[in-house]
Design a protein around this nucleic acid. Sequence first.
DNA 1: ACTTTTTTGATAGTATTACTATTATACAGG
DNA 2: CCTGTATAATAGTAATACTATCAAAAAAGT
Lengths: 231, 231
Amino acid sequence: MSKTSIKINLTHKAYLRDPESTELGRRIIKESIILIDELGFEQFTFRKLATVLGSTEASIYRYFENKHKLLVYLVSWHWAWLDYSVLFQTNNMPDPRLRLSRAIDVITTSGTDDPATAHVNESALYRIVIAEASKVYLTKEVDMDNKDGYFLEYKRLCHHIAEMVLDVNPNYPYPHALISTIMEAAHQQLFFAQHLPSLTEIKGTQRRPEEAAAFLKHLVFAAVDQNYKAA
Amino acid sequence: MSKTSIKINLTHKAYLRDPESTELGRRIIKESIILIDELGFEQFTFRKLATVLGSTEASIYRYFENKHKLLVYLVSWHWAWLDYSVLFQTNNMPDPRLRLSRAIDVITTSGTDDPATAHVNESALYRIVIAEASKVYLTKEVDMDNKDGYFLEYKRLCHHIAEMVLDVNPNYPYPHALISTIMEAAHQQLFFAQHLPSLTEIKGTQRRPEEAAAFLKHLVFAAVDQNYKAA
DNA sequence: ACTTTTTTGATAGTATTACTATTATACAGG
DNA sequence: CCTGTATAATAGTAATACTATCAAAAAAGT
């Protein structure tokens, strides 16, 4: 990845005013990532964020309607960044198996900071994605939010990897289901390894992302390579 | 399943006072399931529940410290019931493959009401589990809650099915990771089929649970049957 | 039937959250 | 220097998430 700054463009508007366009906006993004990571989304409030920023609630409300929309923005940013990252890292890989394998590596080990997006603490954001991302869609407003395009980045990423699955085996019947399953599993298994270790064989020690990647690759290639036979 | 009433015993105490022990307690459980299903967990409040019950907030607070603990109770009850159900439905099945296959059927199609647990609306509770269960552990308090045994029912269920995996293939290296993955996937795929259909091949029409079961069986047996080879 | 304990309802009150509105000021570009 | 935009300061509201107290009602024990 180059050292030039990357501007991730989001296709929807989870925001009222583009936070990238002003100094306060950028500080809202930067500090909210740190604060949500620290407090968890439930305990995070605009009042606390305003205090950290030395600003006011009202100022933050000019950028985001509420904290849920801010979370949507942050998580969408991550998916867009990850989609770009997967594309970049698998570019010019002719072997479809290696390409899919690399993609799985990227999605499980994306918790490392990238100098190209300096104003975003990518590893803190990744922790937020692990612990909070599913709350973005697990609401009663999911259908409205979907209509407003809030999940486009996630769907696009899943679709790209699902196509890689079909490149390996065009007859595999569940490419999207498989990829959405392992995308979620990537986070869950890392979370379980840390907090509920009896739910996984991935150890809570070092090289957790690599172990998770190994499990997921095993799973994906087993599924994709299998000749279909009902159990 | 027999027509005699079943009392599900939870090993921890998410409650302050056992809701099964009083009339009001049982009504709290019954009506909270309906109300959370209706409003979603975020919009659900003890005040609204009290209004439905013709009672007061203070009375409900005598049973549960807060709405999160009530959700823990409801979800744990579901896991305990599902564990029992899996055990019952796989009892006396000598073939390990058929047993595992049946277990997957049970966990994906458990949204149907059971006359044995009349005071609980099992299908509404299943919808709650699909949309809200992960919020039970995706909190900053997860380690404390784990210490207090709030996830024992879920862990026990996963462990039972993981053992079935090992009965099929004792050398499969990720039985718990596989089962925790497909437990979560079962809910996600049903949720996606309904709300974000581009993320899955499972169609939003009829027989959704059966389609989900087919996908999950394909996945599980592919993984368990595969001779290990790195990608 | 009487007493004691438990359970519930009624009422009140607090701190915090999740906002909205208004106005004044700072500051940046033309 | 003027003008618009961005921000800060202040104030206020409705709802949420509780806690405390006390009296009435119901249940249980003797």
